[in-house]
Computed example of a mutant assay.
Amino acid sequence: MRKYSSTRGRLLFCRIMEIVALNTILPHILKGHEVLNTYTSFLLSLCLILVLNNIFRYKYLKDYRNKTYYLSYGLSVVIIGYFNYYMKNPGTDIYFILTLIEVMIVNRDIKTRLVTFHFIIYLISNLYKIDLFDSKAFISSLVNVALNYGSFFLIIFLFRTVVNERNKVLDLNQELLAKNLTLNEYSEIIKQLTLEQERTRIAQELHDSIGHSLIALKMNIEYAENILDKDPEKAKTAITKAKQVSKESMNSLREVVSILRKDNYVDKLRISINEIFNNFKESNSIEFTLHMDEEVEKVSPDIKNCIYKTIREAVTNGIKHGNATNFIIEINKKDNNISLLVQNNGLPCSNIIKSTGLKGIESRIKALGGNVSFISGEIKNFTISANIPNV
């Protein structure tokens, strides 16, 4: 069944059966003739034409819609019908079955016209069995011929159904295999993209947390350096704060390293924001004002985490790039929307180029379905305004 389900297997089977049929017909032609006469030569010529015509059709006429194919097939059926009419032989029955198999199984589609023509030739070639002058015998013989034809037609049709179903299964298996290969390729691509996104995420986290700590550390050290001679006690306090910031930055680094395992969410947002302010408290050069709706503490950890990181990066950027000394932060919740405003008195920016920090702010807020704007004043001030849906 496996071999016969393929076109090559079906053709090979038909060729073998043709040889069997021909070996049955030839002895019948030559039987009783010691020398070749005209009629025997004629029959042998028909056999040769039949074989050559079949070879030509099988090898060169691949398009079953071609008119030449119809002519070649019709010629073979007529020759077989002639043999069947004049020398009823098992070989002719085999040939009739093979030609029917050709149009029902070997070909993908059943050609109704060829099947009809095949049946008519089969019926005519069996007329010798029918007594045309005896109506009852004629009808009875006609029914028998039709039943014989119908029996092997039905067998071939059922076999065709089995073969087609098997071909469908094989095609589906091939399609499934192709889709599995495609899915594996997509899986590998997704894996690479995920790794790339994770690397970007870690780089962003390093930039945001460590960058903020380094700015605070720099501010405290510079402050201590400037007042060391004037006020050693305050300088000592600033150095102590710098050491604390350094320690906290190391803790932040450890947290970033573990980011692949879990996110470090903010628990109490106001407390976490005040910790950002405390990093610059001892320098006495940065002022912070926070207006926060306490309802914001009830929003999801993802939103609070996003707000905290946005403020941290806004403070870092404002001090580093704008020399800002004053920050006003407003966080409000209205209906299903969280609004965030971070404004500083830093230097203006005529052409805002989104750095790694600003891109990180934008990507985090957009990931939550929100939007963000970066606005620079003409003389001073830089503002980050964001809205995040709370759904």
Results as ranks from 00 to 15, higher is better:
D93P: 01
Y70L: 12
I94Q: 02
Y85M: 14
T116N: 07
L71V: 15
G74V: 03
Y82H: 11
R113D: 09
Y73D: 07
Y70H: 14
K111H: 14
V78N: 03
G74P: 01
V115S: 04
R108L: 05
Y95K: 01
G81Y: 03
I80L: 09
I110N: 08
K88V: 11
T99I: 07
I80C: 14
V77F: 00
F96M: 13
K88L: 12
I80D: 09
D93R: 02
I79F: 05
G81C: 06
K111Y: 04
K111S: 14
I105K: 08
Y85Q: 12
F83V: 07
V78E: 02
V77H: 02
L114G: 00
S76Y: 00
Y82S: 11
E102L: 09
M104R: 06
G81W: 03
I110L: 15
Y86R: 01
L114V: 07
F117T: 01
F96L: 05
R113K: 12
I79W: 04
I110F: 09
H118F: 03
N89K: 04
T116A: 14
I94F: 13
Y86P: 00
N107L: 05
I79E: 07
K111D: 11
Y95E: 07
F83L: 09
N89F: 04
R113C: 02
R108H: 08
K111W: 00
N84S: 15
Y82A: 13
M104V: 01
G74H: 06
V115N: 04
I80S: 15
L71R: 11
Y70Q: 10
I79T: 05
V103R: 06
T116S: 10
I101F: 15
Y86E: 04
I80K: 03
M104F: 04
N84K: 10
M104S: 09
D93F: 15
L100W: 03
I94C: 08
L71E: 04
M87K: 01
I80R: 02
Y86K: 05
Y82V: 12
S76H: 02
V77W: 00
G74C: 15
G74N: 09
N107V: 00
Y70E: 11
N84R: 11
V115I: 13
K111I: 07
N107D: 15
V115A: 10
V115C: 11
I105Y: 05
D93M: 11
E102M: 10
S76K: 00
F117W: 03
V77M: 06
L100M: 14
Y73P: 03
M87F: 11
G91V: 10
P90W: 07
V103Q: 12
D93Y: 13
D109C: 06
Y85T: 08
Y82C: 09
R113S: 10
N84D: 10
F117Q: 02
D93T: 13
I97Q: 07
V115G: 05
V106T: 13
G91Q: 11
Y95H: 07
G74S: 15
Y86G: 10
I79L: 06
V77P: 02
K88I: 12
T112S: 12
T112P: 01
S76F: 02
V77A: 13
K111A: 08
Y73E: 08
T99D: 05
